[in-house]
Design a protein around this nucleic acid. Structure first.
Lengths: 263, 263
DNA sequence: ATGGACGTTGCAGAGCATGCAACGCACCAG
DNA sequence: CTGGTGCGTTGCATGCTCTGCAACGTCCAT
């Protein structure tokens, strides 16, 4: 809508690929160098880009700080975190928390597995939306029309032989997931990794987030993982209760939340 | 430099404080509602802001994803991480990694204490620059002129009785730190928390990052913490060596880095 | 009903971003 | 030393694009 801002914002994903010099930025934007320079300067003044010693531009610190604030403000995350930790203490596996936002599903919290074999994922990274168990739960709860629209325009990469192959299959899966109130990903993203997930609901019953437990085959089989389902669901329900204000919050675990930072 | 972009970017920190509606954004920016609307729309199209169900605007998912990429691109972080983990395994305390960037010092990695009493801090949050041990190391290494300039324009909040009170004291402290090659924060930020920190240097000897071990008094006294200094310095030196390409990288620990994400 | 609060749209005017060309600078090769 | 090339930077005139206004639609509370 606003050309100048549009161009400026386009610089950021570009720099996310790695540092770039002025000429490169100008080229990629399709504008004159002087134009790119002024945009970069403005971004720089706000701390969104940083000029490293070799004069090339990188993404800046303010961006990281802002994103962190954005996550802190997600109150589901704050409420859920102790529950995720407790679940991890009980089962030992990696626990994820994810939300849906405009065609993307995104991890907003994670507790690492206590087993030596861990999986790689990261907070803030968009999830493989067509296969992830948490994504299924979040999409399954969208209103019919929006769900169809989103599902239609997705790509369906075949990560493995068990990946969701196309929109139709995905819609069927979503229907099943909505029906049963939980979801799995059995080797759909990586052959050897299984997940089981449950939804977190707000006061109005809408799914506001989803959580999952993931573990590689070498640690537990899919069947064994499924035996954790009741526990996962109970945890998710507990979070739902607290989030929607139904459950009085009982601080069971050693809390640590004076809002201060320390070196 | 560019008015439009400038205004648009100013919206983001504003939204970081919490969700805001159109009128509020327009007021805070000092522009007409229609102007604010168009800026917000542009930000929205790029995923930097998100419109929640009550029509108010929040920071969006792309921002989080971008910041994550920005951090991944910091190669010090990648190299340092396994070392930080190992250090944490050895001493059990919270380990931090921080860098300096344009008048700010910022945590870019953290390994949580294994003791039940933890401290609160977060990756991405600017550090209390006048007292943090890592900040002292990073500032101490700036060129004379820049260091003075930065130190002069800082605020010196008195978090505790031991906080650095003013610029002069800080300059003295920095001189000492530069001299000895390591730094501490003994209750300067929070009365009961002590830190000991060491610098990580690039091939040219410049300090590129700093790491610290922090622990509350109730777990170890300041003196006990200081006995960890050699270990902290060795760790920092190991990272320096690897970062500057002097040390052949030996993958000692169970690595887990297929660049994929999983639910 | 009716007023107010809020988001949205079309429009005309001008403020502001744009591209150009010229400059400064570092680096390299001759 | 000198000419050349590749970079970032600056001043300026042109006109595109952003701006504020006013009017409209909607929702909600009075």
């Amino acid at each position: 809508m606003s050309q100048t801002v549009d161009r400026a914002l386009s610089i950021l994903p570009l720099l996310a690929e790695g540092p770039a010099d002025l000429g490169r930025v100008a080229d990629r934007l399709g504008v004159h160098k002087s134009t790119a320079l002024r945009l970069l300067r403005t971004l720089h003044d706000h701390g969104f880009v940083y000029r490293q010693s070799d004069q090339r531009y990188r993404l800046g610190a303010r961006l990281i700080a802002l994103a962190q604030e954005a996550m802190e403000n997600l109150d589901v995350r704050e409420i859920a975190h102790p529950h995720l930790v407790r679940l991890n203490e009980q089962c030992g596996h990696t626990v994820h928390l994810a939300v849906y936002e405009e065609d993307e599903v995104l991890y907003i919290d994670k507790v690492e597995s206590r087993y030596p074999v861990r999986m790689y994922s990261r907070i803030g990274k968009p999830v493989a939306i067509t296969v992830a168990a948490v994504a299924k739960l979040l999409l399954a709860d969208l209103p019919e029309g929006e769900r169809r629209a989103v599902v239609e325009k997705l790509d369906y990469p075949l990560y493995t032989a068990r990946s969701t192959p196309h929109a139709d299959a995905f819609l069927k899966e979503l229907a099943k997931v909505r029906e049963q109130g939980w979801a799995t990903d059995l080797g759909g993203h990586e052959e050897s990794i299984n997940c089981v997930a449950a939804p977190i609901r707000g006061a109005d019953g809408r799914v506001v987030a989803a959580m999952s437990v993931s573990a590689p085959n070498v640690v537990v089989t899919a069947d064994e993982l499924l035996t954790l389902l009741p526990l996962v669901r109970r945890t998710a329900d507990a979070i739902s209760g607290e989030y929607s204000g139904r459950t009085p919050v009982h601080h069971a675990e050693p809390q640590h939340h004076p809002d201060k930072d320390t070196p």
